[in-house]
Write a protein that binds this DNA or RNA. Structure first.
Length: 588
DNA sequence: ACACGGCGC
DNA sequence: TATCCGCGCCGTGTA
């Protein structure tokens, strides 16, 4: 009956039930399928009874596959799911390469409103279908086993799973016309959905960390932390918890009587800026800064990365989340591989622990100044366009303007200030924010900003226009028509309104950069396939793609990646990609 | 659950 | 008068 339906279907909705959230170890328990919301089928294949034997009344997966494979793998039949990246990974491990256009209600919901807090099926069903779905906790009861779903009775599992598949299809019937109406279909089908299997493969492949390097760092840093603890206690004259900002504040500002600066809701601020200021008066802050640096690296990166090496693969498998950020960027979690330290020497040593597979090297390809290039394109500012078209150092050019000198006379310090301003511009920063960032007076900051806008008048005009556009429309868009609503843009609360105004400036820039890097990942993936290379894309870090490249493919990959990334979109200024290679992440 | 602090782009 | 630069994830402390 299902098969008869499938042969007529124009869309197949599916939802997998498994033994684990980790697709690398999850076993398939059941699969629900539907082509219309009125009839949903549940196929139990991996249920266990209470004695942990195979439950009766199930189908053998091989026989199910004999019947269903042509439809599941059909390149013509579109597949709909909620968070299809997961189902894709599960089915792939069970011998099915899901084919056809992929449509995902989680991503559809995200494109329709990227600012929404949750795109979970249960929450969307409640909001758009006025239906309360049975939660996973309700169907698995008190069972705390990681593979608890396998022990759910067949009727209960069927009802639960079918409910989810049906809700997915009903949501799709709402979202699909909305995507069309808001002109989001190309972004959805040609960008976001193309990215899904690519991200799934990046996650599956993972990245190697060298446990020997991590162990060495762990031992060394723990010893340093221990020594610093002794010194801090000596300098403070008493024991206390250095990791507690509250206790640290009491020591610094009450016991030692050092001058306190800003206060937070809960007490004195003890952040890095405050501690650096206090170094003039006492040796304690210096030791605390060093202690903070080392404990941060140890707890967040060294020890926890070692814990997250997958037992089956010996690699780290992050999750790339496609429905989290308000701007269109990806995020990475469990662990976050988009914030591995880079600036400090200790950070570089952590990067050394990330290594390519034997016989391979890492190749990193990053867009040069992508945010400012996007700004140049939007603003059509003659000076900014000229600087990028002539290939000059944008921060040096900016410094020459705001310091009223020639670019040949720009010092590294002047360049640093200009760089801060350039980043601030992208974020819609005020004179107040810039002053705080550069530790200069507000008047000086205002002078820099005035001179900046004097020279880059097109940027000023752009910032004005985009805020105006946001006020009129209630939303802003990127070059690929990604949209973000700004409910507070006309708020009477000045703080809220100004925040929305900064968002109106930043989102088209950051979001367009996100569009570009997503297009790049898709293009590069397709070309790698076409050329039959073994190179694997491992990471996306906002403006950078990192690959694991067999040594013999280094040249071919470089020749492929750079032009592919530079030609994904034609802006008014060139997109420039820098390539570097190395035997670990520190070397790239 | 929330605040703080800190890592990345 | 006060304002405190956009987007994330995560560890720790505190309640």
């Amino acid at each position: 009956m299902l098969v008869a339906e499938l042969s007529q279907a124009s869309l197949l909705t599916l939802d997998t039930e498994t033994t684990s959230l980790d697709p690398l170890s999850a076993q398939l328990v059941g699969l629900s399928l539907c082509t219309v919301p009125e009839r949903v089928y549940y196929i139990p294949v991996g249920h266990r009874d209470q004695a942990d034997a195979r439950a009766p009344d199930q189908l053998a997966w091989d026989e199910v596959l004999n019947q269903l494979r042509p439809y599941l793998e059909s390149p013509k039949l579109p597949k709909l799911g909620h968070n299809l990246k997961y189902d894709l990974a599960i089915l792939s491990r069970h011998g099915v390469m899901l084919g056809g256009p992929l449509w995902d209600t989680m991503i559809a919901s995200y494109l329709l409103d990227p600012g929404r807090r949750s795109h979970k099926l249960d929450d969307l069903a409640e909001k758009f279908l006025s239906r309360r779905l049975t939660s996973f906790a309700e169907v698995t009861g008190n069972d705390k086993r990681p593979d608890c779903f396998a022990y759910v009775g067949l009727p209960e599992a069927r009802d639960y799973s079918c409910e989810d598949a049906r809700a997915t299809l009903l949501l799709w019937e709402i979202f699909r016309p909305e995507l069309d109406r808001l002109d989001l279909w190309p972004l959805f089908s040609e960008v976001e959905m193309e990215l899904v299997p690519i991200l799934a493969e990046m996650e599956r492949h993972g990245i190697i960390v060298d446990p020997a390097v991590l162990n060495l760092l762990s031992v060394e840093f723990h010893a340093d932390i221990k020594r610093l603890e002794q010194e801090i206690i000596r300098l403070a004259g008493q024991e206390f918890n250095i990791s507690s900002p509250r206790q640290l504040g009491e020591i610094l500002f009450e016991k030692l009587g050092l001058p306190h600066g800003r206060k937070t809701k809960t007490g004195y601020s003890t952040d890095i800026r405050v501690l650096e200021e206090l170094q003039r008066y006492h040796d304690l802050p210096t030791a605390v800064i060093r202690h903070r640096n080392l404990s941060k690296l140890t707890s967040t990166y060294i020890d926890s990365l070692a814990d997250q090496v997958h037992p089956k693969t010996g690699r780290i498998h992050t999750s790339f989340n496609q429905t989290v950020t308000a701007t269109g960027r990806l995020s990475s979690s469990n662990p976050n591989l988009q914030n591995i330290p880079i600036r400090t020497h200790e950070g570089q040593r952590i990067r050394q622990a990330f290594i390519p597979a034997p016989g391979c090297l890492f190749l990193s390809a990053d867009y040069s100044q992508i945010d400012l290039r996007v700004l140049a394109h939007y603003a059509q500012d003659p000076a900014l366009l000229k600087a990028f078209r002539s290939g000059r150092d944008i921060h040096v050019e900016t410094a020459a303007e705001i310091f009223r000198t020639h670019s040949a006379m720009v010092t590294t310090e002047m360049r640093r200030v200009a760089k801060t301003i350039n980043f601030g511009i992208v974020y819609g920063m005020s004179a107040f924010g810039l002053a705080g960032q550069l530790n200069i007076s507000r008047k000086e900051a205002a002078t820099f900003i005035d001179r900046y806008f004097d020279h880059f008048a097109g940027v000023k005009q752009f910032m004005h226009d985009i805020v105006e556009q946001a006020r009129t429309n209630g939303y802003v868009t990127t070059l690929l028509n990604r949209r973000r609503v700004l409910p507070d843009i006309n708020s009477t609360n000045r703080m809220q309104r100004e925040f929305a105004e900064r968002t109106a400036i930043n989102t088209p820039i950051q979001g367009t950069a996100a569009d570009i890097i997503k297009l790049a990942a898709i293009q590069v993936d397709h070309r790698i396939r076409k050329e039959g290379l073994q190179t694997k894309m491992l990471l996306q870090i906002h403006d950078e793609l990192v690959f694991e490249v067999p040594i013999a493919e280094q040249e071919a990959t470089t020749r492929l990646v750079k032009p592919a990334m530079e030609s994904v979109l034609e802006l008014s200024v060139p997109l420039i990609v820098n390539i570097s290679t190395g035997a670990n992440l520190a070397e790239t």
